[in-house]
Amino acid sequence: MSFLEVLYFIIPSAIFYAAPLVFTAIGGVFSERSGVVNIGLEGLMVMGAFVGIIFNLTFVDTFGSMTPWVSIIAAMIVSGIFAIMHAVATISFRADQTISGVAINMLGVAIALFSVKMIYGKGQTDYIQERFVRFDIPFLSDIPVLGPMFFKDVYSTSILAFIVAIGAWFVIYKTPFGLRLRAVGEHPMAADTMGVNVTKMRYIAVILSGMLAGVGGAVYAQAISGEFSHTTINGQGFMALAAMIFGKWHPLGALGAALFFGFAQALSIIGGQIPYIDQIPSYYLHILPYVLTILAVAGFIGKAHAPKASGVPYIKGKR
């Protein structure tokens, strides 16, 4: 395998593994920008993966090849509703945001596994028949070097991930809604004084983060794992959280960081097929994404600060 062939092999895989992280990390950006820490992304992703697979298995005859897309929408709605729990607890009930997030994580896994056992009588679903499929983008895939790297054999979900990231950047930085969102996360009292409804903004942001994490989970389940069990979502939500921090709470930064983690993940899974890398014991490749995350969070963040009001419940009239 030549170097270029290795790149043709690993870059599409990196994007492929990054896509679910991108969705979820962007969800995290929305939530934290509004001032609500959402460590429950993992649980929301589990919920998305679970709903996606169940919906796909149940309605595959009705929707045919469109099933994965409809399943994503179903996962998005259910995870969005699930996120309301986090929103109510943290925004209205002033719960500790990290603890509520931990509860969401535990609850997501528990509900998903409970339901799977109830429906299928075992801890694992069947494999889905309609998955996301790869396709070549016309014209673009014919470009030499770049074509096979980025535009050949791509998943439509990967393209969607890029669109969502750029869309999120536009919404957060170029619209009045985004300005209010950021204001609420930095200084809720000032925003409140200017007539911004802090509670409403935060609710919208947390629900958005749930919806995006649900999409991330459903994409992971329907493009990568193909079934749902207790190991389907195993830390991806936390990695998305790290990607958000590494990306300095910026949608495009999160996109870049997620691609980086996707690369590490791809390396740990397909590394055995690449010359030289297959000489490295698989152990090092397995821990690579996690070690890189720690290094990234420790080394590269530098002066980046979380949104100022992140993690603090807003209590009207309290200085």
């Binding site: 719960a95 603890i99 535990m106 109830m118």
Partner: peptide, 22 residues
């Protein structure tokens, strides 16, 4: 009944403790 029902209960208890304010 699947054992996960107890995980659901435990997660809910944490959730309610976190909502101690209300």
């Amino acid at each position: 009944i699947p054992v996960e029902i107890v995980s659901i209960v435990i997660a809910l208890i944490i959730f309610f403790v976190a909502c101690g304010y209300i």
